[in-house]
Design a protein around this nucleic acid. Structure first.
Lengths: 217, 217
DNA sequence: TAGATTGTTAATCGATTAACAATC
DNA sequence: TAGATTGTTAATCGATTAACAATC
């Protein structure tokens, strides 16, 4: 049974990875998998996998393991991939363009309903198969498509203003590529930050650390 | 004093954020900050900040707090931003282009020494201020610039092969935008993964969760 | 039935928070 | 000196791992 206990972020962040590995197993034609097999495949412990899955229900069979197809579908449901939520991308610079072309949104629980920018050079341009609209059209478009998610690819300085505009149209969920701290400044928002700078600096730290460690050996 | 105890990933991943907030404080002309002020600014506890910083040394003054400038410099040193490491970007599609133009590499501890792709349409193109080279030139270029970091923006299928090529030239550190699990397949590598898909699915989960929660109230 | 593997409780480990003596 | 705030030890909290009874 799914428990009342609030599911921790650590568990949630592992779900997409399970989903990915199960997809691969499906592709390979595997029909069943045990927690210990999956564990060694993913570099986790079998215990952790069973604990994680049992946050959401009892998907396995004792003595047998898990059905790959069924588990895949369950996680797909849990992640909400079946009924994708409408989203807009704001800021169609390099990052906005890359995101709109590169991401497989529909298989990630999101449908892009519009691209927006405030630069005259970009407005009207076709990216993927969508025309970039002006910021003046944002509110109308958000209402029309009942947009729920804002994807922020604008420069850091534009973060606060664009966030305000989106919140005015009822958007409460953000995929945020800027440094602007949306969750801190706006109550009742759901924010997933992509801090590429932070990730790169972490890498730099780890590389330098390993260099230093080698010197001292 | 800096301790012998291995520093945990949780701490390391907070460093870039400290760095960012200290940069802002500098910009605002602030000269000193206490752990409790910084804590409320960042939405952390003062305890955690003091614990984190004390992994690396004693940077504060009792009864006074921390010097903004000094602390900023210390963290900069810790992150290895002062002596940037040479890197190459492989795969100059949408994401590769966005990364090369958008990121402020030099201020993140990295210098880009070359862009590489295997598509004739992209080779020779100028991105930012660099010409895209062919994969044949990779090995020579890596040796020439003593490249330490590989940035992988290639399609998932190309992950294993490109990784192999880079490792052959001595690259052991990766900023990885593919789904290929480098660390799992190659020993002694340092890998920082950017899993945009995972981040987006986590967002989808959280949004759907909040919708369900609202229905049940 | 016997063997395998789950679901779940208990034990361990690590990270965060609280408390306080040291000291500027 | 008195007040403030650090550095650091101790207490708490949460997440991971181990163990095992339930059961397919």
């Amino acid at each position: 049974m799914s428990k009342d206990r609030e599911i921790s972020m650590s568990v949630i962040r592992r779900l997409p990875r399970y989903y990915r590995f199960l997809y691969n197993l499906k592709q390979e034609g595997k029909t069943r998998i045990s927690s210990s097999k999956l564990a060694s495949l993913m570099g986790l412990t079998a215990s952790q996998i069973r604990q994680d899955l049992n946050c959401f229900g009892e998907f396995g069979q004792q003595g047998y393991g898990y059905m790959v197809d069924q588990l895949y579908d369950e996680i797909s449901k849990i992640l909400g991939i079946e009924n994708p939520s409408p989203a807009v991308i704001i800021g169609i610079g390099n990052m906005g363009k890359a995101i709109s072309k590169y991401m497989d949104f529909e298989n990630r629980g999101i449908v892009i309903t519009g691209l927006f920018d405030d630069s005259p050079e970009v407005i009207g341009e076709t990216v993927g198969n969508m025309k970039v609209k002006s910021m003046e059209e944002l509110e109308h478009s958000c209402n029309q498509y009942q947009v729920e998610v804002g994807i922020l690819c604008v420069p850091n300085e534009a973060g606060p203003e664009v966030t305000k505009q989106l919140i005015k149209t009822g958007v409460k969920t953000f995929w945020n590529f800027t440094h602007y701290d949306i969750a801190y400044n706006h109550e009742d928002t759901i924010v997933e930050n992509v801090h590429l700078d932070d990730s790169l600096m972490t890498l730099s730290y780890r590389l330098n650390k390993s260099k230093k460690d080698k010197q001292n050996t």
